[in-house]
Design a protein around this nucleic acid. Sequence first.
DNA 1: AGATCGCCCTGCTTGC
DNA 2: TGCAAGCAGGGCGATC
Length: 290
Amino acid sequence: MPELPEVEVVRRGLERWVSGRTVGGVEVLHPRAVRRHIGGGSDFAAGLLGRRIGTARRRGKYLWLPLEDGGSAVLGHLGMSGQLLVQPEAAVDEKHLRIRIRFGDGLGTELRFVDQRTFGGLSVHDTTPDGLPDAIAHIARDPLDPAFDDAAFHRALRLRRTTIKRALLDQSLVSGVGNIYADEALWRAGLHYDRPTAGLTRARSVELLGHVRDVMNAALAVGGTSFDSLYVNVNGESGYFDRSLDAYGREDEPCRRCGTAMRRRPWMNRSSYFCPRCQRPPRPLPRVAS
DNA sequence: AGATCGCCCTGCTTGC
DNA sequence: TGCAAGCAGGGCGATC
């Protein structure tokens, strides 16, 4: 379940092991892995062959490899279970290997996109003048981006007629926050997921952003979150952050702040974990009409 | 255009 | 034991 910190760990791995290398061959083993690429697998491969890869970049949960001398980039999203692995060429193929990228150097390693559930994928896109793939021009900056505008985020929250967790997961308002870190940040802020955004004070919005940043930085410091074997970083090394989670996945366990049993509620075909005492619902349950 | 919701996908877990 | 349902969930496109 890679979110921003995990994707950043992968970006750093790509920067170290892949940037500066020239593509020598591309193999697309599953069409769904390139479904966002207009033109399909063969066009994807043709667009990469012979190109030198620049410095890996990231915004929110998207990462991309600029292709030098051409105004385009390989855009990647890990989805639910995607991994980008740098493996020895001789290593046995992973069960869910979807794309293989070989290099024309003698380093003996290749880049592999492995993805069990196929929510993720790679695609080549033109880049805007500031180097952003055009396909993600609608994605907002993420909270760790130095240019993220806290005041603008607060104004946007006040204008929306929605609730706070929906807003946190809306990648056009702020990117990189998924279900796990949304619940973590809301727990830290003492905010219920159903709180309307329109009623938030500026101080509350900025405080919440601070908690989002704190929980992301804490995850980054230990190399990302890992809940099962699905998520490993670019070199196959698992991250560890699950022991530090205060809300997500802690149904019936005591709140680490007040001891009250944590609760799980079905929410948007997902789950929301919260403390019923620290995170009070925004309004009382509607009375039954008499 | 803002808000909502269904769908995509595989494997593990749970229940009968 | 076997099968079905439930669950995980980001992003996109359809709809109102």
